[in-house]
């Protein structure tokens, strides 16, 4: 019974939070509601007995949404509402129809589908984090490694994009050196390099 109460409570909370995320015109509301929704999702993992995934959900998404806040801070005045330009009403209609269809499917599927047996039933002798580790390093090894490589690519790309003149420290340089560097930047050859 407690599982059912917790499930419906957190389901309602999660859905309302993500609704706020989508509907609001306030960047700060949207971000905060999204962070809250992500944390409420972890409750489902805890209800299902997947403690490890629940804790990881909290850790990963608080950090990820925190990075979004940093962008929000840079791009918006977060205390004002953002007026969106909706140029194409057809786009909204298509999206709304798809969303409605998806909702109907989600409700219908449990009625017509049979109970699915677990493909990889939990080994009761292994703990939660051990079970995740076993699956991650056997069945899902290739996607796991691929994700790691993709993250590495993203990191290298980020460093290349952002890291111009990272070997120099403006704080430690003398004024003349900085001026010299800035004039060098505006010569035609170096100019192409910079942009």
């Amino acid at each position: 019974m407690f599982e059912a109460i917790a499930f419906y409570l957190f389901a309602a909370l999660t859905i309302s939070m993500f609704t706020i995320t989508v509907m609001t015109q306030q960047a700060l509301y949207a971000l905060s509601a999204m962070a809250a929704g992500m944390i409420f999702i972890s409750a489902f993992f805890f209800i299902l007995g997947a403690d490890f995934l629940g804790a990881v959900q909290i850790i990963v998404y608080t950090g990820a949404v925190m990075a979004l806040y940093a962008f929000g801070m840079m791009f918006f005045d977060t205390t004002r509402t953002v007026v969106e330009k909706r140029t194409n009403p057809r786009f909204v209609i298509v999206l709304a129809t798809l969303a409605a269809l998806l909702t109907v499917l989600v409700v219908i599927v449990p009625i017509i589908a049979v109970d699915m047996p677990a493909q990889l039933p939990i080994d009761p002798s292994a703990g939660n984090s051990q079970a995740v580790g076993m699956v991650l390093f056997t069945k899902y090894l290739v996607p796991f490694e691929l994700a790691a490589v993709m993250l590495l690519v993203a990191m290298v790309a980020g460093i290349v994009l952002a890291g111009k003149k990272m070997d120099k420290s403006l704080t430690l340089m003398a004024e003349e050196e900085i001026e010299l560097m800035q004039t060098a930047q505006y010569t035609p050859v170096a100019h192409e390099e910079v942009h």
């Binding site: 804790a55 850790i59 608080t62 950090g63 939660n128």
Partner: peptide
Amino acid sequence: NIGILFILGVMAVGLYGPL
């Protein structure tokens, strides 16, 4: 059985207050 992860994760959410 994942106590330490839970503690660190939830404690980190506390920084949302100042933010």
